[in-house]
Amino acid sequence: MGFKLLSKLLVYLTASIMAIASPLAFSVDSSGEYPTVSEIPVGEVRLYQIADGVWSHIATQSFDGAVYPSNGLIVRDGDELLLIDTAWGAKNTAALLAEIEKQIGLPVTRAVSTHFHDDRVGGVDVLRAAGVATYASPSTRRLAEVEGNEIPTHSLEGLSSSGDAVRFGPVELFYPGAAHSTDNLIVYVPSASVLYGGCAIYELSRTSAGNVADADLAEWPTSIERIQQHYPEAQFVIPGHGLPGGLDLLKHTTNVVKAHTNRSVVE
């Protein structure tokens, strides 16, 4: 069995187990497998329904001669939608809004960016022009300005110390501490036991640490421990890039980060 097929099978099995364990909360999309990078042309966006009122959005972007996937989250909030992270750029984010209108038909009224990198804030200006209120932590807003990236308009308070959590509509926002970046936030959907790890969490097929220019490698494993301790009931975990899975993604990420750190020390 090929690795790609095995990865998709694991996603399907995880979703099936969740649907059985929580039949009222989960209505997993039966329309197909989780979209992969090879299936999404740059400039297009796919939506994948995880649970009743919960979707991931998947886009792709060219970077350094390669094409990478990027995940975000959409959560229903009454007759409105909360968006977590842009679709990595203005063109993708405009396509995301169009796809949401086509498939869901509810307005996106608020959006949260989970850290300051372009795959999370690139497209904020498109959201703002569409009347979406954009939010991020003060740290993310400051770092985005320093980096020359787009800056969300509103500040999220109460997320300055490791372990801080605040309720934001249908989700809980959690600051686990520094990891992929010093400002990275985690998003949890309690009604569906869905954990969105953003770039602080890796997919299972990833074996290298990737972009760690703004990471705190020493603190990252401790931050992941905080996530595990705060959300032990999480059933569906979405990484910032690639295929979702279960809580095993947290341990896998820790292993990859520690291996990278150990290699760096040896070198």
Rank of each mutant, 00 (worst) to 15 (best):
A136L: 03
P176N: 01
N92D: 03
S137F: 01
V42C: 06
I224G: 01
G105W: 05
W55V: 02
K4C: 07
G148E: 09
Q103N: 14
G131L: 06
P138T: 07
V166F: 09
T140R: 03
R263M: 15
L97H: 03
P152N: 00
L143F: 13
V212R: 05
S161T: 12
V108L: 08
E101P: 05
Y12I: 09
G32S: 09
E80V: 09
T134P: 01
V75C: 01
V108T: 06
G177C: 04
F174G: 01
G131P: 05
G123V: 03
Y202L: 15
A209F: 07
L9D: 13
D29I: 08
G2V: 06
A165H: 12
N184T: 02
G53E: 10
G78L: 07
I50A: 05
W88M: 02
T60Y: 13
S31I: 07
S139M: 13
H180E: 01
E225V: 13
P138A: 07
P239C: 01
P170S: 12
S31K: 09
V194P: 02
I84M: 07
G78D: 13
F168V: 07
A178L: 06
V256R: 04
I20G: 15
D216L: 06
G158M: 09
E172F: 05
P69H: 15
V108C: 01
N262K: 13
V257R: 02
V28A: 12
S208E: 12
E233R: 12
L159R: 02
Y175P: 01
Q235G: 09
G53T: 11
V112F: 06
F26C: 10
N211A: 13
P232V: 09
L159K: 02
G72E: 02
P244Q: 06
L47K: 04
G242W: 05
L250V: 04
L13R: 12
E203C: 04
E101R: 13
V166W: 07
E157A: 10
G198F: 04
G131N: 11
T253S: 08
L13M: 14
P107V: 13
L156V: 08
A144H: 04
S193G: 11
L96G: 02
E219G: 08
G210A: 06
G105S: 10
F63H: 07
V187S: 01
L173R: 03
M1V: 06
R128G: 10
S70G: 01
L97T: 05
V166G: 05
A15E: 04
T153V: 13
P239K: 01
Q103F: 12
L156P: 05
T254Q: 10
T254W: 13
N149M: 13
G122C: 06
T222K: 12
E80Q: 13
F26A: 11
N262C: 05
L217M: 12
G197A: 14
P138N: 08
Y196F: 14
Y231D: 01
S7H: 08
V54L: 06
E44L: 08
S193H: 12
V124T: 08
L5C: 10
V108A: 08
E233H: 12
F63G: 15
V212A: 09
G158Y: 08
Y12S: 09
S139Y: 09
L217D: 01
A51H: 08
A90G: 12
I151M: 09
S264R: 10
S264A: 11
H260P: 12
T254V: 13
K4R: 05
G245K: 02
P107E: 12
S161P: 06
T36V: 13
I20S: 08
K8A: 10
H154P: 05
D29E: 10
K102C: 06
E157Y: 14
Y48R: 12
G242K: 05
L97D: 00
I40P: 15
P41N: 12
E80L: 05
Q61E: 04
D29R: 09
A129R: 10
T261Q: 10
A133P: 14
S30T: 14
V37P: 15
S162N: 09
G163A: 09
A15R: 07
G89F: 03
A25F: 15
F116T: 02
E225K: 12
V11R: 08
R110A: 14
I17K: 15
V126A: 07
P221T: 12
H252S: 04
C199W: 04
S193Y: 15
A59G: 15
I17S: 09
A165T: 12
P23F: 08
V112M: 07
S223N: 01
R120K: 02
V121D: 03
S205Q: 07
I84R: 01
R263I: 13
K91M: 14
L47H: 05
A209P: 12
V146P: 06
Y48M: 15
A59V: 13
L82F: 07
V108R: 03
A15P: 14
I238T: 03
F3Y: 07
N211E: 14
P138I: 07
T254A: 09
H230Y: 08
V237A: 03
A178P: 13
V256T: 05
I50E: 03
I20A: 13
L47P: 06
H154G: 10
S160C: 05
L81E: 02
I84Y: 00
S30C: 07
P35C: 05
V11G: 06
A178S: 11
Q61C: 04
T60G: 14
H115Q: 01
E44S: 10
Q49E: 11
V146L: 13
L173N: 05
I100W: 03
L185R: 03
V187E: 04
R167I: 13
V194W: 01
S56N: 15
G122N: 11
V194F: 04
N211I: 07
I104V: 08
R76A: 09
P239I: 03
L195G: 00
F168S: 04
V54D: 04
V54P: 02
Q49G: 10
V212P: 09
V112H: 05
L243M: 14
T109G: 12
I40N: 13
P244M: 13
G105Y: 07
V257Y: 03
Y135G: 01
H180D: 02
L250N: 03
R76D: 05
Y196V: 01
P170C: 06
L217R: 04
N184F: 00
R226P: 04
T14G: 02
N92F: 00
Y34L: 15
G198H: 04
M18Y: 14
I58P: 03
G197M: 01
H230V: 12
R167T: 12
G197W: 03
L82C: 03
H252F: 02
P176E: 00
G105A: 11
H154R: 11
A15S: 10
I151F: 07
D118R: 04
E157R: 13
M1N: 03
A165N: 13
V146S: 13
S16W: 15
E44Y: 07
V42A: 15
A15F: 09
K102R: 13
V11A: 10
I50H: 08
A95H: 14
V11P: 13
E150Q: 05
I58E: 10
V37L: 14
I227W: 03
Q61D: 05
G2Y: 14
L13N: 06
E147R: 09
L24H: 15
V42Q: 11
G245S: 06
D85R: 00
P69D: 15
G43I: 03
L96P: 03
E233V: 12
T109R: 13
R226S: 07
A111D: 04
Q228A: 11
I50D: 01
A215Q: 07
V212S: 12
D29H: 09
E225W: 13
H241G: 00
L9G: 11
G89H: 00
T207Y: 11
S30N: 14
S31H: 07
G131S: 09
F168W: 10
K102T: 12
P232G: 12
E145F: 13
R167W: 11
T140L: 03
H230D: 07
P152R: 00
D119A: 06
E267W: 09
N149F: 08
L127Y: 04
P152S: 06
P69C: 06
F63Q: 12
V265H: 09
R46K: 09
L127D: 04
R46S: 09
S7P: 08
L249Y: 04
E150K: 05
D125G: 09
V194Y: 05
D29Y: 07
R141P: 05
S56V: 15
I104P: 00
